[in-house]
């Protein structure tokens, strides 16, 4: 089985988010980037397929050279080879188009993407990808087994779980549950040493369409000062007259 894990390079959740150039650009200054958590669950599941079923695992990221540390980490965790599509990702359609091109060339059986990236939360890539490739698609995937060319996936649905089967080739949108947080791997020294020698191939983007463009970002209102009240009556009064919520 040949697996491609799509990895998105996203700011760490503790990063301070700021915008520049009149609130049109994300300010990367001082921001730590990590593997998108949903993708990390997928990567870890892919490592399981590698160890238990001898799968080959490649990773692909659309991004400029600044995404390479994140990719190198994925290689240190155990992926065999990386493909970087040398373009700054603009929107979900653009990313999916780039990935689709790489996937067609690589003849993959299973494409593991994250349900969404925690930066822009678009949630479009895996769906569009399946559409462009004409592959089966299972989203919000919280469990995955493969036997022969049949996958059995568990999906999270409102109030319960759904078990589905699908033929390979398949695209999944994965999330926590594929593996648990405690299963996530910290790259060990041996992995880091091996990652030095693994191929990280850079390919140029294909002329893709930009379907949407960011115009402006707005941050939520900063939290106001805390007001301590002396009594419950005063609190109720303030909630009524000042906050106007009751």
């Amino acid at each position: 089985m040949k697996i491609l894990v799509c990895i998105s390079n996203v700011p760490d959740t503790t990063s301070k988010i700021n915008f520049t150039e009149g609130d049109t650009q994300f300010d990367t200054n001082g921001v730590q980037f990590v593997i998108n958590p949903n993708d990390e669950f997928g990567l870890t599941r892919a490592m399981w397929f590698k160890e238990k079923q001898g799968a080959t695992v490649h990773i692909a990221t659309v991004g400029d050279a600044s995404v390479e540390p994140t990719m190198r980490k994925a290689l240190a965790i155990g992926a065999d080879e990386g493909i970087r599509i040398n373009a700054v990702p603009t929107d979900g359609f653009f990313v999916a188009e780039q990935l689709a091109h790489v996937i067609k060339e690589g003849a993959y059986d299973l494409i593991i993407a994250g349900r969404e990236s925690i930066d822009y939360n678009g949630g479009m890539v895996p769906g569009i990808l399946a559409g462009l490739l004409g592959m089966n698609f299972v989203n919000t995937c919280i469990g995955l087994e493969v036997e022969g060319d049949t996958a059995t996936a568990l999906r999270e649905i409102d109030g319960g779980k759904e078990k589905v089967t699908a033929q390979l080739p398949l695209v999944i949108g994965g999330q926590k549950g594929l593996v648990e947080e405690s299963d996530l791997k910290i790259p060990n020294m041996r992995g880091i040493m091996m990652a030095r020698k693994k191929a990280l191939n850079v390919v140029e983007p294909i002329g893709a369409t930009t379907a949407t463009a960011d115009k402006k970002f707005e941050k939520p209102e900063p939290k106001g000062a805390v007001k301590l009240t002396e009594s419950v009556d005063e609190l109720v009064e303030l909630l009524h007259t000042e906050a106007k919520v009751i």
Partner: peptide, 10 residues
Amino acid sequence: SEEHKLVRDA
């Protein structure tokens, strides 16, 4: 370097 940070973060 990229490797310094990978080693440190691990």
